[in-house]
Structure formats: C-alpha cells, structure tokens
C-alpha cells in the first residue's frame, strides 16, 4: 500500500525533515508513527498527501510514485485518502451533514447517494442524530468524530490521522481510537501520527518511531 524507499526531505532553508526513510505498509494494516515534536511525523503525512514532494528516494502509494506526481493528479490521489486533523478542520458555516458530504459532493455523487453514505458514516461514529447541527454546537470529541466521518465517507483505501487525540482527554482519546480500529477492521489501511505513547502501547499495533527525521524503531508497540 505504502512504500518508502530511501525517502529524504530537505527544505529550502537547509532543514532536513526526513533522512533516507525506508519502510513498507501492507494494505489493511494499522500502524502508528510516533516521535517527539520535530521528529518528522507531519512531514511523512504531508508527503503521503502530496502536499510536499520527496527531495530524494522513491515514495509509492498504491503503486503510484508520489515523487513524480503531477499537480493535476494530486486531487485524484487525495480522493483515495481520508485525512483526520488534530484541529478537525471543520467548516462551521455548514451543518454536520454538509461537512461530511463534502468529499462526496466533490466526487459528484447524486443527492440520494450522498444522503445514504453520509448517514452511514455518521452512524459509524454514533452521530446520526447530530446531522443537522452546526459543528460549533458539538463537543470537541464529537467534532473529531465528524472529522472522522468526513474522512471515511468516500470509502478511502488509506486513512491518515495527524495527532487525532491531541486535544482530547484519555477517555475520549480511547473512544476515538476505537473508532479507528473499527474502520481498520472494515479493510482500510490506517496510519496515525501520535506522540501519546501510553495510548499507543495499549493498542498493540505496529509502531514506527522517528527521531530527527530518522526511523529508529519499527515493531509492535509494547
């Protein structure tokens, strides 16, 4: 599903985001990327979302080489990915329903199809009864679940999450992680960047550890 081959990222100011990173993620896998602030977690996610391009090496996502992807191909790549942000990135002038429907509207699905899929996605995150509310009326945990519903509504092959539990208390964090596991069980590859080692340890999934842009650990969280 994901293949990093000696992938490096050097910025214009000389800062090195990633050092010759190599690893492989199988389809349907659930893994964490962890490390301190500045370790390269966000850079890794940005490369997968084609927000940045590798400076060296080869990065393959579902067989597509992201090192040489054209600007015109990027939107179509992103339609195969779901993204969950720490700050939710919800649109507060739209209802929960409309926020979740956004990826489907971009795909140009019919109203009926959008309605069905949005309701299914909201049911999966237990927010079916909040569809008509504004995200601003929801709690932080509920907002994060809206973000997750938006990320899975178009049935992506890969789900990326950047510190999805960063702002949540331990109980809510565990709840959100449970939702990710459920999504993973449905066949979606899930990659979560997080520095919450205690939470990661409880979940016993594969964990990549980054330090200053280098991969220093790859194995099941203990």
């Amino acid at each position: 599903m994901i293949k990093f081959e000696q992938v490096g990222k050097r910025y214009a100011n000389g800062h090195i985001g990633l050092h010759e990173l190599s690893f492989h993620v199988r389809r349907g896998e659930f893994l964490f990327v962890t490390g301190h602030s500045g370790a390269g977690k966000s850079t890794l996610l940005r490369l997968l979302l084609a927000m940045e391009r590798p400076s060296s090496g080869k990065l393959l996502l579902a067989g597509q080489d992201l090192s040489h992807i054209t600007n015109a191909q990027i939107p179509f790549l992103r339609r195969q990915i779901g993204v969950v942000f720490q700050n939710h990135q919800l649109l507060f002038d739209r209802s929960v329903f409309d926020n979740v429907a956004l990826p489907l509207q971009i795909l140009g699905l019919s109203k009926d199809e959008i309605g069905t899929r949005v309701r299914t996605a909201l049911e999966r995150v237990s927010l079916a009864d909040k569809a008509e509310q504004s995200p601003g009326d929801l709690s932080t945990g509920q907002q994060q679940r809206v973000g997750i519903a938006r990320a899975i509504v178009h049935r992506p092959a890969l789900l990326l999450a950047d510190e999805p539990t960063g702002n949540l208390d331990p109980r809510l964090a565990a709840e959100i992680m449970g939702v990710f596991e459920d999504i993973n069980r449905l066949g979606t590859t899930v990659l979560i960047a997080s520095h919450d080692l205690a939470l990661i340890a409880r979940m016993r999934h594969r964990m990549l550890t980054l330090q200053r842009g280098r991969l220093i650990g790859d194995g099941e969280a203990a």
Partner: peptide
Amino acid sequence: SATRMPPPQPAQRVGAAPKKSESPTP
C-alpha cells in the same frame, strides 16, 4: 466505548466494491 460500531457488513466495507445501485468511486 459507546461509539463502537456494529460488526462490519460486507456491503458497508470501506474500500469494498459498491453495490450495483451505488455510484462509482475512484
């Protein structure tokens, strides 16, 4: 947790092929 989902149904699988009536995805 209260937010956990019911067991996956084949028709609901993320990434699974949609039913004939469903619109295509990428």
